[in-house]
Design a protein around this nucleic acid. Structure first.
Lengths: 188, 188
DNA sequence: ATATCTCTACCGACTAGTAGGTTGACACGG
DNA sequence: CCGTGTCAACCTACTAGTCGGTAGAGATAT
């Protein structure tokens, strides 16, 4: 397997678990079975690795969301699949959505990373807005107020639920924190 | 002014802005106009300072919430004041609720800090539950499902809104992320 | 076929700087 | 004289990043 891709994999896991400032090249090197200097060969600076991780993550997230939308029959189905996606991420990588994990470390991110983080968040919000709009049309989701505002509220709840679950070490808390979203969806 | 209290002040600000791993004794010493060793005199280990900060913060938060409840006439009034509290914290300290700021760093927290963090979160959730219950009785808040579950959902949304606002550097996003909470409250 | 050249991936040893933490001495007020 | 608070100097471990160099694969030239 490609060493570079392997490093991006490990870097993503590390960042999702401990944030950008929470892992080191030395730590990563040990995991990859490689020397620190060799990581610098692939990613001259830590920010280069961070950007590569973020870039690939954003791509994958947008693709996953688009897949969900194209295979869902109702808005509620799409929103439910999205909630499940965030829940699964919590279990799989024992870490959060990169966007939430990086928010705390924003002060030490490079400008390109900040911009990419913003773009990723905006894309997710736009997707949620379109799903809420669809759900309002097909009467599968109750949408109070403007879908554009509500989309931000839903994302906040998704990320906050991950935060709360991780802070308590109690992953089931994620589902509880999603209760008010579930209540707004008609069961299919 | 008491040096020890001053250090707790500075430590709280640092932790809320950059998390537990995001500040150092050297950094703190410079701010306090004191040497690193002197900080160790007051707080032998960083974890001691962290615990002191968290302890005082939890106390103050619970007190503030209880004050809100005793001066509010309706559930909606209390909830609105709570939302304002979280919003103000975002501006004042340019940082988040400690509970959210520490969630990302949970891996490097000591056991006592983790326990205190959990206790603080549970207290806020219990407070929110009582407010939702009150709001349902006086018909000032729409509560779908169990108040106990909804309380967790509201806290997730509060913390997620702070996260999102901070990640984007756009504090106004907090208000947008609260839209669906506002929609559930009858205007007084 | 063999010598040369080039490139990728890797590594050991190093740098300057920072992390949290320790020690022993000095000042000062009760 | 004793407790409190402060300090300079120091320590070990770790941070990101640099340096010169090596092993091997593939192409090219003779």
């Amino acid at each position: 397997m490609n060493t570079r891709d392997h490093l991006v994999d490990l870097g993503e896991a590390a960042m999702r678990q401990n944030g950008y400032g929470g892992f080191s090249y030395a730590h990563l090197a040990k995991q990859a079975g490689i020397r620190k200097a060799s990581i610098h060969h692939h990613f001259p600076a830590k920010a280069d690795l961070g950007l590569a991780v973020l870039d690939r993550y954003a791509d994958r997230l947008v693709t996953a969301l688009n897949d969900i939308k194209s295979t869902s029959r109702t808005g509620a189905q799409a929103l439910q699949a999205c909630v499940t996606l965030y829940r699964t991420a919590l279990d799989d990588s024992n870490g959060m959505c990169l966007c939430s994990a990086l928010a705390a470390d924003r002060a030490i991110l490079t400008e390109p990373m900040k911009q990419m983080l913003d773009r990723a968040n905006r894309k997710v919000i736009a997707w949620l807005e379109s799903v809420l709009l669809l759900g309002r049309q097909d009467r599968s989701i109750v949408v109070p107020g403007l879908p554009a505002d509500d989309a931000v509220a839903v994302l906040a709840q998704l990320q906050g639920a991950q935060l709360l679950a991780k802070a308590s070490g109690h992953m089931a808390l994620f589902n509880t924190a999603m209760s008010s979203i579930q209540a707004r969806m008609s069961r299919s």
